[in-house]
């Protein structure tokens, strides 16, 4: 019976939290659904693999909402995709990378996503994130590993008219990170 549920029945750690706008702050905090995520490591990368751009500057996001790639370092990318792509994407990447030494590691279950959106979203994030999230320093399509309070996160700013951030953290930190963001939104005043 579990067989049939695999890939559809992931027990997400934040599954029980609905989208919330704590204290009517205009900041919406929404745990993301099940997604596939890969850590890609490669030196001297090709321009793209599996249709994902590898030649963008460090700390930049490319792709779209359903299939995105964030360059976190000179030889490190975080890739997000629909859950259904989780089984096929590694092979497609590997094929395009060929003989180049690389590592593709499935971290779909390691990472938990939380979307934070609203005009004042950056204020809530800055309760615990020490980065300059202003337009000039952290425009749309920025992506970086950083801190939120006492947890490490990856912070991605998605494109769009309304500021929309994706916070990714490790699974066991997700309760803390979610609680931190809710408290931060309450105190954003």
């Amino acid at each position: 019976m579990l067989e049939a549920l695999y890939r559809t029945a992931r027990a997400l750690p934040l599954g029980r939290f609905p989208a919330a706008d704590p204290a009517g702050s205009g900041i919406v905090i929404q745990p993301a659904g099940a997604e596939a995520r890969l850590s890609l490591r490669v030196r001297d990368p090709v321009a793209s693999a599996a249709g994902l751009a590898l030649d963008r500057p460090i700390n930049r996001l490319s792709g779209d909402a359903r299939r995105w790639i964030a360059r976190l370092g000179p030889d490190e990318w975080l890739i997000g995709a629909d859950e259904a792509e989780g089984d096929t994407l590694p092979g497609a990447l590997a094929a395009d990378l060929g003989e180049r030494p690389h590592a593709i590691v499935d971290i779909s279950h390691r990472n938990v996503g939380i979307d934070v959106s609203g005009a004042r979203a950056a204020i809530a994030l800055n309760a615990g994130c020490p980065l300059d999230l202003g337009e000039a320093a952290f425009p749309a399509r920025s992506a970086t590993r950083t801190l939120l309070g006492k947890a490490e996160i990856v912070l991605i700013r998605r494109p769009g008219a309304v500021p929309h951030y994706r916070v990714e953290c490790w699974r066991s930190f997700s309760t803390y990170v979610h609680g931190f963001l809710v408290e931060a939104a309450r105190s954003a005043g």
Binding site: V105, D106, I107, R110, W170, R171
Partner: peptide
């Protein structure tokens, strides 16, 4: 030519 990735919470 080696890459390290934490999978503590993947598994």
């Amino acid at each position: 030519r080696v890459f390290l990735t934490s999978t503590t919470e993947q598994w």
